[in-house]
Amino acid sequence: MKILLVGEYSRLHNSLKEGLVLLGHKVTIIGCGDKFKQFPVDYSIYAKICNDNKIANFLFKSIRKVIGLDFEKIEKAIRFYLLLPKLNGYHHVQLINSDALETYPVLSRFLYKKLFKKIKNRSLLICGDETPIVDYWFKKELKYSVLTPYFEDNSLKKQFKFPLKYRIENYRKTFEWLKDNCQKLITSDLDYEIPMQKMGLPTTFIPNPINVDTIAFQPIENADKIVIFLGINRLSSIKKGISYFEKALEIIREQYADKIEIIRTENMPYNEYIVAYNKAHIILDQVFAYDQGYNALEAMAKGKVVFTGAEIEFLNQYKLQEDEVCINSLPNENEITAKLSFLIEHPEKIKEISKNARNFIEKEHDYKIIAAKYLVCWEA
């Protein structure tokens, strides 16, 4: 089968491609690499002129400030349009998001229509912010969501422009069009499966694929200090609840100065990020989550103890006990501090969770098994 994957935000599509290729399929990824993260793609729609040419960058930013026209979005649309003649003979196309092209919704719909004339079998992946997901968060039926900081302080609206845009009519129209023109809606974890089900939308739940062949398990050895890693993406730090980790680290640094080492990074490219946390024992990932995102899963595959989403819904889904394969981090710095303190004082527990984490990834997220599940879903 010849498969086209459109968009890449987390390395999900790259790992899926690797699994599909091993199963004998030909796979192409189109995307922009997600800015500073620089994920690999086969065909790039990265807005090179707008971003890399200093004069053009200054000019286009000035125009955007005056009249609101975003030339970066337009350049991405043009680059995708120019690639359309190369996109022939594909049996299936999957979009990573309704805004997979990262352009204006009206241009997205125009380009999707062109693409869908070529490829009849299609799926839309729900693995991040999306119209029905954000709609459900606004119902406030969950005890918390990534929009909790915004609900508590509406002055943060600018920092939440990415999730909030999906409630704008033009973005909503794009999702509705895709919902009607894709045969499958696929969710990647419970943070999206739960809202989609609550909103009455039919989905197929397929866990994130992790390449367990290229990510080596790193057994945790006895060390003089426990190394704690916090990698910050400033574009999403508020919605991930990073401030709770920062407050907890301030307390931990004072209490255990001679027992810990803290590594803190910001906005690192993906390849640098995964190297930066290699020496860490504990990874602080995110707070406002019920299941693990992609970064957390890759860290767990290495045997890191990850503070992330692991709510009761996740435990029930995979028949696990609390804090067995990762640490459920709640929006409370004192609870995070208490869990960090326990691990620092009981390093044998770190080793136990580390082994459990790797075993869990191999059992539930092996990229070859997950790729096979995608094929079954697409062909059903």
Rank of each mutant, 00 (worst) to 15 (best):
N359H: 06
Y374K: 02
Y112R: 01
D135V: 01
A77S: 11
L343M: 08
K26E: 15
L4D: 06
K140G: 02
H13T: 15
I194W: 05
I327R: 03
I126Q: 06
Q317M: 15
I74L: 10
G293V: 13
V212L: 00
L330H: 05
A289M: 01
S237R: 08
E333H: 08
L343A: 06
T28E: 13
K239I: 08
I283A: 10
H281P: 01
R167Q: 11
K157F: 09
G241K: 09
A310Q: 01
I336A: 01
H281Q: 11
E272L: 07
K304R: 10
K139Y: 04
C127T: 15
D224E: 13
I133W: 03
I252N: 07
G309D: 12
I274H: 02
L343C: 03
H92P: 00
L156Y: 09
K17Q: 01
L22A: 11
E8L: 13
K113F: 06
A301M: 03
Y144N: 00
G293Q: 14
E193L: 04
V6K: 11
K240T: 11
P207Q: 07
Y150P: 05
E246S: 13
K225T: 05
P202T: 04
K165I: 09
D52A: 03
V6I: 15
I327L: 05
L315A: 14
Q292A: 15
K17V: 02
A299D: 00
V275M: 04
A371S: 10
Y244I: 13
K373T: 09
A357Y: 04
L125N: 10
Y277Q: 12
L330P: 03
V287S: 08
I274G: 05
E8G: 13
F80L: 05
K37E: 14
I78Y: 04
P85M: 12
R64Y: 03
W137Q: 04
A289K: 06
D213K: 13
K161V: 10
L297A: 08
R109S: 08
K161S: 12
H25V: 04
I369E: 05
F116E: 08
S329F: 10
L230V: 00
C326V: 08
N53K: 09
E176C: 07
A248M: 02
K184S: 07
C326P: 11
G309T: 14
C127I: 15
T203N: 01
D213I: 07
T148L: 09
C50M: 13
E75F: 03
E345I: 05
M1T: 10
I63L: 13
F110I: 15
S155K: 12
F39M: 06
L142N: 04
C377H: 06
D42G: 07
T308W: 07
E364P: 03
D191Y: 01
